[in-house]
Design a protein around this nucleic acid. Structure first.
Lengths: 220, 220
DNA sequence: ACCATTTTGGACTGTTCAGTCCGTAACTAC
DNA sequence: GTAGTTACGGACTGAACAGTCCAAAATGGT
């Protein structure tokens, strides 16, 4: 009975095998789904505070499956960071592909970061990249690289987006797009910290409003 | 010989005793100094990653002395946060008591946060309050309260300071002082995160320049 | 059916964790 | 000196930690 249930989630089969390799027994879990659960666990409690027990429970794996598939707690975090970054970038690109003025999309995007309804996996957990950057980036080179890679991708995309906004006339071209992009990055990062520190949402909203007014001109 | 050395640092004596209480054997360490060392340890590595072994080594105390004096690791952190907050507020008040235009002092104060020479206890460790806010505030009410208390004190002082700047003519009064104060808080918090994430100093400096231009008018 | 191979559950490892406890040292009052 | 009290060093605790290992189960190829 248990095997019937588990069999439904079999995936990946021989995907990562070197050509002719077969897969005598199929993996009983979905790697991406397990990684999402690991990601949520790290997101909720941070790296150090998430024990292997927490992680295995969240992912629904036994120790042997976890170590076979992910190698170590730290490597699982690196994989989770990578997946998070891809998810966030895809979602961001999707958002900005709508056919509205870029300034409007930008304001929506920034305000989304303090929308309590949009908080996943739970309230008050902020942004995984920010959390991990603060906890681990100064002490682990590979993690710092992962964080910086995400920040660079996001900054580059935002700069590009702001240029589009300059072109469509919705964003005044008073600042270098790269500077404005960094400002937005900084705005979001700061907001995550202040939110964790218990600063009230209306104050965070006011910070966003003033900042957007500085960067985009009139109110949006 | 050992006692001679230790005796030099004897302090606090009967300070916290209830009136007629005597202190048969004096404490051999300075509580404030020990707390500063604990503060540095938490600042460098975060809460979870700092073991009692690290803490005792940093503070130069044995286990019994530590627990007798501070109660627990968590209480030591709360005491360290309180001390950090007092130190920072005192230093900030001192800085802004100089007889220069407030806008100039403000620009200096903000830029100080990315001055590598001013990094204590070490490079890349940012701000203790920010670090702890991200790591623990969402999971510990008392720590959240300590973080919020510091942020509120700082925001109130900055708002007051900006009003002084409006009065002395160095800061245009385009924004609510409270809003500008929150913007500055957010600026500093964001910078700490981006710095941890490996964003280059010249980009952080540019973020600060643009933000100050928005809030203070011309370049400072 | 049987073999070769992979995944799985969970027992097991040695280490490190925060925190307790107690015998001894240090000190004041008398 | 002696009594009474506090501080200290370090041995000790039980729990939790990340990670290893292996027998049993599952599967495809033959």
């Amino acid at each position: 009975m248990a095997s019937l249930v588990l069999d439904r989630s079999v995936r990946y089969g021989c995907v990562s095998s070197p050509s002719k390799q077969i897969m005598p027994r199929c993996r009983e879990f979905d790697i991406d789904h397990a990684l999402d659960q690991a990601l949520n666990a790290f997101w909720l409690k941070g790296y150090e505070a998430t024990s292997m027990t927490d992680l295995m429970a969240a992912m629904g794996l036994s120790k042997s499956s976890f170590y076979e598939c992910f190698g170590s707690k730290r490597e699982a975090l690196l994989a989770a960071l990578s997946r998070y970054s891809e998810r966030e970038m895809a979602e961001t690109r999707r958002h900005f592909s709508a056919a509205e003025p870029v300034a409007v999309l930008l304001a929506e995007w920034v305000r989304h970061s303090i929308d309590p309804a949009a908080c996943r996996p739970s309230q008050r957990c902020g942004c995984l990249i920010v959390n991990i950057a603060v906890e681990l980036a100064p002490h682990d080179r590979e993690i710092e690289d992962a964080v910086r890679h995400h920040l660079d991708m996001l900054a580059a995309f935002l700069a590009e987006t702001i240029q589009r906004g300059n072109a469509d006339g919705s964003i005044p071209s008073g600042f270098e797009p790269a500077h404005s992009a960094d400002m937005l990055l900084n705005l979001i990062a700061g907001i995550q910290v202040l939110a964790k520190g218990g600063v009230e949402t209306h104050r965070l909203a006011a910070i966003i409003d003033v900042q957007l007014e500085c960067l985009l001109g009139s109110t949006h």
